[in-house]
Structure formats: structure tokens, C-alpha cells
């Protein structure tokens, strides 16, 4: 942006000349100013996310001490959450490694 030498107002480009919006004084466009006052937002490179089934379970803890009710497999991912009041044991959530069946265990 270029400002008027006389009154300090903003100048606008009119046919290659910079003219003061307020008092009408004209001046040459300062070279290189154009680049200095250009701001660029670059193209975002976010690609479509591709994922696979079960990928969020990779590396999650497993328990081999349980049996899936649905398929009889003996290994399941687990996680804890305090679902009931604080003096109750936390609830264990299971997800069968084989068939994805989920169930809870309260003690």
C-alpha cells in the first residue's frame, strides 16, 4: 500500500498512477511495492485420508485370558474406564481380535 506524501491518506492505483483517495495528489507507483504488499495463502496439501480396518488397534494391549462369546477366540484388545462411581472397580472393555465383537467386564 502506498500513502500520500501530502495528507497521508491511502493511495489507489488509477491507470498505472497512484492517486490519493482523499486529496487527489498523484504520484509514481513505487517499484517493488507491489510484491511487498502481496500476501499469498498457499494451496493446502491435505490429501484424502486412506485408512484400513483395525489400524487403530495396532499395538493396543491384548489379553489372552478371555474368550469371545461370539466366536470363541481367546484373545481380545482391552481398555479400562471408570464407568461407575469411584468406589467401584473400573469397567474393562474388550474387543475380540478375531471377529471384532465387543463386550464389558465389571470386575
Amino acid at each position: 500500500m502506498q500513502f500520500c506524501d501530502d495528507c497521508g491518506s491511502m493511495m489507489v492505483n488509477e491507470g498505472g498512477q497512484m492517486v490519493c483517495a482523499d486529496c487527489g495528489a498523484a504520484a509514481e507507483q513505487e517499484a517493488g511495492l507491489s510484491e511487498a504488499y502481496e500476501s499469498t495463502t498457499e494451496q493446502s496439501t491435505d490429501d484424502v485420508i486412506e485408512t484400513e480396518e483395525g489400524v487403530n488397534f495396532e499395538g493396543k494391549p491384548k489379553d489372552d485370558d478371555v474368550v469371545c462369546d461370539s466366536c470363541g477366540h481367546g484373545e481380545a484388545y482391552y481398555t479400562f474406564k471408570q464407568t461407575a462411581s469411584a468406589d467401584e472397580p473400573p469397567t474393562r472393555f474388550f474387543k475380540c481380535v478375531e471377529c471384532g465383537h465387543r463386550w464389558r467386564d465389571y470386575n
Partner: peptide, 14 residues
């Protein structure tokens, strides 16, 4: 628009 290219705003040339 930002998924398609760069957007430049030039306040000198408006």
C-alpha cells in the same frame, strides 16, 4: 479454493 491453488492478495493493486 485452497484445495485447488494458491490465493494471493495484493493490497497495492487491489
Amino acid at each position: 479454493i485452497l484445495a485447488l491453488g494458491d490465493v494471493s492478495t495484493n493490497v497495492a493493486d487491489m
